[in-house]
């Protein structure tokens, strides 16, 4: 079973977000970069579980990024991926990332492709869908269960207020959400092995951007919090009704 997992880097979840002077990019000073949580915890670990259960196969990872991102690639290799590909450019949008990966995929063969449900920086949650569209493959977003038996994949996906069980034969793209797998902490052996696993650098294609992030702002600070006596919930209800207009 050959599985491709698309990973992205993301600022650590505890990062206090600040921007550069032009306000058009994250100020990377002091930011710790991690493998985007849903790519690593759910998509990658599930791929490893399926490979282990099948007793054969390969888990490959791909990311679009510069050489400084090799550290997060090594992390994913330490978790257990077999090999890595890096398309050598700074990612500028979900659409260009998907187009680059789709272009690279010509001539490659995978049983299916997994990615996380969204990155925690841009939260577009669209890369998987765009990649599937480029490759003309079925796309199943937000899967929380995946089982593969003799080439038929059975999945359960979150449909907002419920779940849907679906079956797909042949290659597909799916995005992974919580519940699909449990985070794995790499052990020393994995970390050592990751040092010698191959990272293949692929030069990008020339592809036009379709959107551009102009600038970023931080949300307005909340005013002071009004404290309410815990014995006086009628007062809270009154304020929610007449002041906040929330009731």
């Amino acid at each position: 079973m050959n599985i491709l997992v698309c990973i992205a880097k993301a600022p650590d979840t505890t990062t206090k977000i600040k921007f550069n002077a032009e306000a058009n990019a994250l100020d990377g000073n002091g930011v710790t970069w991690i493998v985007n949580p849903s790519d690593e915890w759910y998509a990658l670990v599930k791929a490893l579980e399926l490979k282990e259960a099948a007793g054969q196969g390969k888990v490959s990872i791909i990311t679009v990024g510069l050489s400084e991102d090799d550290s997060i690639i090594r992390k994913a290799l330490a978790v257990g991926a077999d090999e890595a590909f890096r398309i050598n450019m700074s990612p500028d949008s979900a659409a260009s990332v998907a187009a680059q990966i789709a272009a690279w995929m010509k001539g490659q063969s995978f049983d299916f492709i997994l990615t996380g449900k969204e990155t925690i920086d841009y939260n577009g949650s669209l890369m998987g869908g765009l990649l599937a569209a480029e490759l003309d493959l079925p796309y199943i977003p937000m899967i929380e269960k995946l089982d593969v038996q003799s080439g038929i994949a059975t999945m359960s996906r979150d449909i907002g207020g419920g779940t849907e069980e679906v079956q797909v034969q042949g290659p597909f793209v799916a995005s992974a959400t919580k519940g699909l797998a449990e985070q794995r902490i790499p052990n020393m052996r994995g970390i050592m092995a990751a040092r010698t696993k191959p990272i293949t650098v692929v030069e990008p294609q020339s592809i036009d951007s379709t959107v551009q992030y102009l600038d970023f702002t931080l949300p307005a600070e909340k005013g002071a919090c009004k404290m309410i006596d815990p014995e006086n919930m009628d007062e809270l209800v009154r304020l929610l009704h007449s002041e906040a207009k929330a009731l």
Binding site: I120, Y122, Y213, L214, L218, P219
Partner: peptide
């Protein structure tokens, strides 16, 4: 061009969107 998660009406061709999981707002053209 695809605007993911527009959070309001556009000004011309630029849209407000949420970014960094709600820690920031961005304008996307």
């Amino acid at each position: 061009g695809l605007v993911a998660g527009a959070a309001g009406l556009p000004l011309g061709n630029s849209f407000p969107v949420k970014a960094f999981s709600g820690k920031a707002l961005a304008k996307v053209k």
